[in-house]
């Protein structure tokens, strides 16, 4: 079974090749979740909120903390530490790394010629590599979900099952969307550096726009263009799902995938 996963299909190979990376990401993100939420009980104490009082609002917003009072609830705290914060960025960054390199690295290391000499159409090559990325993102977000599920009763976070599930569905979708953007840039141009730069840059920009948009008036009106807003503004961790937001990320991902297929199909490969 494992053998056939490794060599039975291109997407299977894409997953198999990254099995160790997935393991390390899973361990890392599970620790990230646990170590963050473990501080939740101590934050309930007065002194800690006093510390935050002295920090400028805009700086807190940039770090995903939009309401200090909300830190006293499990939803508010976990959001600020993970989903509104760097947890989301970390997961999406791995998707970008996969998307940017999955085609371009084969070209750089000259394995692409052998791959392309096999009877695989170019759209199929792109699609299978994309599927591998999607499966890896679902697996990682699944691990984060389980870590949160296990932490919930231990540190009395009082999170709902639906909330924990939806916030991770959204995380997988957001990551896939940025990963597909990176895939599209590298498929069109063949340049992984450009793919990482464009996708990472846009991700940082949208992240700051979403965070600062809540406190900076002139950004408030354009905050809605940020995918982080689509994902997080409805507070999915509280179980309030924005179908428009999830649908928007799915549609953009699909469009970017079409761009990737088109781009890879039209250009010279391995030049």
């Amino acid at each position: 079974m494992i053998r056939s996963l490794s060599s039975g299909s291109l997407s299977g190979k894409g997953i198999w090749d990254r099995r160790k990376t997935l393991m390390w990401w899973s361990i890392g993100m599970a620790l990230y979740v646990v170590l963050n939420v473990a501080f939740f009980p101590s934050l309930q104490e007065e002194t800690f909120s006093d510390v935050f009082e002295s920090v400028p609002e805009a700086m807190l917003a940039a770090f995903g903390i939009q309401d200090i009072a909300a830190l006293s609830t499990g939803v508010g705290y976990v959001n600020s530490q993970l989903y509104d914060g760097f947890g989301t960025i970390l997961v999406a960054a791995w998707a970008v790394a996969i998307g940017a390199t999955t085609l371009a690295s084969e070209e750089d290391s000259k394995t692409m010629d052998m791959l392309m000499s096999l009877p695989l159409s170019r759209p199929r090559v792109v699609l299978e590599k994309w599927i591998a990325m999607v499966v890896l993102m679902i697996a990682l977000c699944g691990v984060i979900f389980v870590a949160l599920l296990a932490s919930n009763p231990i540190w009395e976070l009082d999170l709902s099952l639906g909330g924990m599930a939806w916030v991770n569905v959204g995380l997988a979708l957001l990551s896939v969307m940025f990963g597909t953007l990176a895939l599209a840039v590298s498929a069109v141009t063949g340049k992984k550096g450009l793919a990482i730069g464009v996708s990472g840059g846009l991700m940082a920009l949208f992240f700051l726009l979403y965070g600062l948009g809540s406190v900076v008036d002139i950004l408030e009106s354009v905050r809605g263009v940020s995918p982080f807003y689509w994902y997080l503004n409805s507070v999915p961790l509280a179980g309030t799902v924005s179908w428009l937001g999830l649908g928007g990320m799915a549609v953009v991902s699909a469009m970017l995938l079409l761009v990737a297929v088109w781009g890879f199909n039209r250009r010279d490969v391995g030049v």
Binding site: R3, S6, S7, G8, S9, L10, K13, D17, S109, K110, T111, D113, M114, L118, P119, L120
Partner: peptide, 21 residues
């Protein structure tokens, strides 16, 4: 001027290419 997947064995390469074909 080609390369093959460096972490696969000869057998795995043959198996993978056969499956793709």
């Amino acid at each position: 001027d080609f390369a093959l997947y460096p972490r696969m064995t000869g057998h795995q390469i043959i198996e993978f290419f056969s499956a793709m074909r």
